[in-house]
């Protein structure tokens, strides 16, 4: 691959993932970012770019369906750790969870805000689990040539994974 095209791709990724969210905050499209959120975003973007490049080299071509499934599994693991931490904590460790649009309308299950946060994390974990099952099923069908419209499903798989991972990263980078 042309190195300049790859560098341009990397720059666009860094712009969209690290810089553009600050623009969205200024426009009032999203909640304020936490302190040093840019660092979390930069590390996440860097990690995913390296993952994409290594995946491309190892498999001979980029497997979109596998990328989606991998991101779902990664989110599931990260959420399990987050839930375990929150369950033993006495304070709300993830106030940014209130900024995930869909989850912010979840009802209060308890009068204790810390217990509520655990319940909300558990709900997000259920969504991640459902995403993992869906992308895993699609990935298996594509791998065994049982899927109709496998390119569309591959693209859909990668987007499901990225949306789930995006939800988790949003929890980490926004203020409560």
């Amino acid at each position: 691959m042309n190195i300049y095209k790859l560098l341009l791709g990397v720059l666009i990724t860094v712009f969209l993932v690290v810089a553009a969210p600050y623009g969205a905050v200024n426009l009032g499209l999203m909640a304020p970012m936490a302190e040093k959120a840019w660092l979390v975003l930069l590390v996440t973007a860097g990690g995913l770019i390296i993952k994409s490049l290594v995946g491309d080299v190892v498999a001979g071509e980029f497997l979109f369906y596998k990328f989606g499934y991998d991101n779902c599994v990664m989110t599931l693991g990260a959420l399990l750790t987050a839930l375990a931490l929150q369950l033993v904590a006495t304070v709300d460790l993830f106030p940014g969870l209130s900024n995930v649009a869909i989850l912010s309308s979840l009802p209060a299950f308890s009068t204790d805000p810390v217990a509520n946060r655990s319940t909300h994390l558990f709900t997000l974990l259920i969504f991640a689990l459902l995403g993992t099952l869906l992308t895993g099923r699609i990935a298996a069908a594509i791998k065994h040539d049982n899927a109709k419209g496998k390119d569309f499903l591959s693209l859909l798989n990668s987007l499901v994974g990225l949306v789930l991972l995006g939800m988790y990263v949003l929890v980490l980078v926004t203020k409560g």
Binding site: L6, G9, V17, A45, L53, F64, L159, L162, L165, L170
Partner: peptide, 23 residues
């Protein structure tokens, strides 16, 4: 929602560039 859309599109740029260069 704005963040999730930006994140998903941003991360997909490099895989798409790899696919475009190959196919």
């Amino acid at each position: 929602m704005a963040f999730i859309v930006l994140f998903a599109l941003g991360i997909l740029v490099v895989p798409l560039a790899l696919d475009f260069s190959k196919h």
